[in-house]
Amino acid sequence: MIVFVRFNSSHGFPVEVDSDTSIFQLKEVVAKRQGVPADQLRVIFAGKELRNDWTVQNCDLDQQSIVHIVQRPWRKGQEMNATGGDDPRNAAGGCEREPQSLTRVDLSSSVLPGDSVGLAVILHTDSRKDSPPAGSPAGRSIYNSFYVYCKGPCQRVQPGKLRVQCSTCRQATLTLTQGPSCWDDVLIPNRMSGECQSPHCPGTSAEFFFKCGAHPTSDKETSVALHLIATNSRNITCITCTDVRSPVLVFQCNSRHVICLDCFHLYCVTRLNDRQFVHDPQLGYSLPCVAGCPNSLIKELHHFRILGEEQYNRYQQYGAEECVLQMGGVLCPRPGCGAGLLPEPDQRKVTCEGGNGLGCGFAFCRECKEAYHEGECSAVFEASGTTTQAYRVDERAAEQARWEAASKETIKKTTKPCPRCHVPVEKNGGCMHMKCPQPQCRLEWCWNCGCEWNRVCMGDHWFDV
């Protein structure tokens, strides 16, 4: 396979590697080409510095992935760790964990309700045991953590790749202090920090972006993250068709209702045909949960890209028209025109101005929308079919299609509260000796007794199943 190397943020060049090629071997190839010592090179990928003893497969490097290699003399205490030698983080029983690669970060837990604080980093599902597709590297999971809308060759929703760059020099040479644990960490600028490894760059702020994971991409090709779309790892039924499908869209209502993408497309087109989208002054033209839940309008309007190009163009047109109407304007009634106009409040005669090729020149009556006339309008008909009709959803289907309910059931079956801080902690095999993952707590306690870890627990039921 081919990976592209950008040395000291210059133009990239291809390097041929195998899945079992080590990072140090990659350094040696680059060092020979650039005429520099291999031990002064640092390989940066997806916000993480890659260790010498890791392989291309370990690092989730795919065909035509772009890695950054910078030349920086080692500072005291760094060289041993980078070589894969006596790194205290690798000691058996050590409590410190390697910062998780962005290629394996899962933010789907952050669609849980606000009262489930902490689960994004504490609760991990076991539903990723799908067998890898044919042709994928051994052991590589097909679980997708992110979804994007690819405006490039795909023109559809695709699995996405999370990447990070330095907000100062805009190069992907920043190593994160810690990985993101929720969508806010990724979507809110300057929320996460790190250290830029580019020479002479003092940058410390992280800037995240997404790429389409279905095809090789260049540095400049980015895609918009659709953070309401998630892999259906909890096997929730769709609120409309009641099938279990994946991926799904999880509405931001209190129940976190789930809808499959085909039904979401149908829901949007139906509402669009009836012009029953909601115009929100802050958000724009949007839709609420299909069950009509309060405070559930979709905030990231790129989710409506699921409509496809033709329907999305209609959505944008109707949204612009609705904006004009909300501002007190009118639409030209001549067939084939429909231009938005903003006449004076007491102006009865409205002319669709033909300047700049935008208007048709038609003069019409503001009251009856017919060709302009003197005197009273002959008839004014009330528009028919403008009443909002509820999208029919079966109550039982709505009850079963809740992301929140599956989460709470998982928590109930696989977790116990920490005796000190009461945060839910998952036990997935292993011994009875637990350690609270909350940095402010870190209590060592017994899963069996529910009390602080002691010699009695150690001698009596340390390794009970």
Rank of each mutant, 00 (worst) to 15 (best):
I2Q: 13
V5E: 03
R6T: 03
F7W: 05
N8K: 02
S9C: 04
P14A: 04
S19D: 07
S19M: 10
D20S: 10
D20H: 09
T21V: 04
S22F: 04
F24I: 10
K27S: 02
K27Q: 00
V29M: 15
V30I: 07
V30P: 00
G35E: 05
V36L: 08
V36G: 01
P37K: 08
A46E: 13
G47D: 04
R51M: 14
R51D: 10
N52P: 06
T55Q: 06
T55S: 09
V56A: 04
Q57E: 10
C59P: 01
C59F: 03
Q63K: 09
Q63G: 08
Q64I: 03
Q64R: 15
H68K: 01
I69W: 00
Q71A: 06
R75T: 13
A82G: 07
G84V: 13
N90A: 08
A91R: 09
G94M: 13
R97H: 12
P99G: 14
T103G: 12
R104P: 13
D106S: 11
L107Q: 14
L107T: 15
S108K: 11
S109K: 13
L112H: 12
S116A: 14
S116Q: 09
S116C: 06
A120N: 14
A120W: 04
I122D: 15
I122Q: 15
H124E: 14
H124P: 15
D126M: 07
S127V: 11
R128Y: 13
R128S: 11
K129R: 10
D130L: 10
S131P: 11
A134M: 11
A138K: 11
A138R: 12
S141T: 11
Y143V: 09
Y143R: 11
S145L: 04
F146I: 06
C150M: 00
V157A: 07
Q158I: 05
P159D: 03
P159L: 06
G160F: 01
K161Y: 10
K161E: 14
L162E: 00
V164S: 07
C169Y: 01
A172P: 14
T173Q: 09
L174Y: 08
T175H: 07
L176E: 02
T177K: 15
G179H: 10
S181I: 06
V186K: 01
I188V: 11
P189I: 04
P189R: 07
N190D: 11
N190L: 07
S193E: 12
S193V: 12
S198K: 09
S205G: 09
E207L: 06
F209Q: 14
K211N: 13
C212H: 00
C212D: 01
A214C: 07
H215E: 03
P216I: 09
S218Y: 08
K220G: 13
E221I: 06
V224L: 10
A230C: 11
N232F: 00
T237Q: 14
C238A: 00
V244K: 06
V244Q: 06
P247A: 04
V250W: 01
F251R: 01
Q252Y: 04
C253L: 01
R256E: 04
H257Q: 02
V258A: 07
C260D: 00
C260W: 00
L261K: 02
C263D: 00
F264K: 01
F264G: 00
Y267V: 04
C268G: 10
R271C: 10
N273P: 00
D274M: 06
Q276H: 07
F277P: 02
V278Y: 09
V278S: 09
V278R: 07
H279L: 09
D280A: 09
D280N: 09
D280V: 13
P281T: 10
G284D: 03
S286R: 02
P288T: 07
C289N: 00
A291V: 08
A291F: 09
I298L: 07
I298K: 00
K299G: 06
E300A: 11
L307I: 13
E309K: 08
Q311A: 06
N313G: 08
Y315H: 04
G319V: 05
G319F: 06
E321T: 08
E322M: 04
G329N: 03
V330S: 05
V330H: 05
P333K: 03
P333L: 02
A339E: 10
L341F: 08
L342Y: 09
R348T: 06
E353T: 08
G355D: 14
N356M: 07
G359W: 06
C360R: 03
A363C: 12
K369L: 08
A371H: 10
A371D: 13
A371R: 08
H373M: 02
H373D: 02
G375H: 04
C377M: 02
S378Y: 15
F381C: 08
E382M: 14
S384N: 09
T387K: 14
T388V: 14
T388N: 13
T388K: 12
Q389S: 15
Q389M: 14
R392P: 11
D394S: 07
E395F: 10
E395L: 12
A397S: 12
W403N: 03
E404R: 08
E404P: 13
I411S: 13
I411P: 08
K412C: 11
K412E: 10
K413C: 13
T415R: 10
H422Y: 10
H422Q: 07
H422A: 07
P424M: 08
P424W: 04
G429F: 15
G429N: 15
G430C: 07
M432L: 05
H433L: 04
M434Y: 05
M434E: 04
P437V: 04
Q438K: 08
Q438R: 05
C441W: 01
L443K: 06
E444P: 05
E444M: 06
W445E: 00
G450Q: 03
C451A: 15
C451Y: 15
E452Y: 15
R455P: 15
C457E: 01
G459V: 15
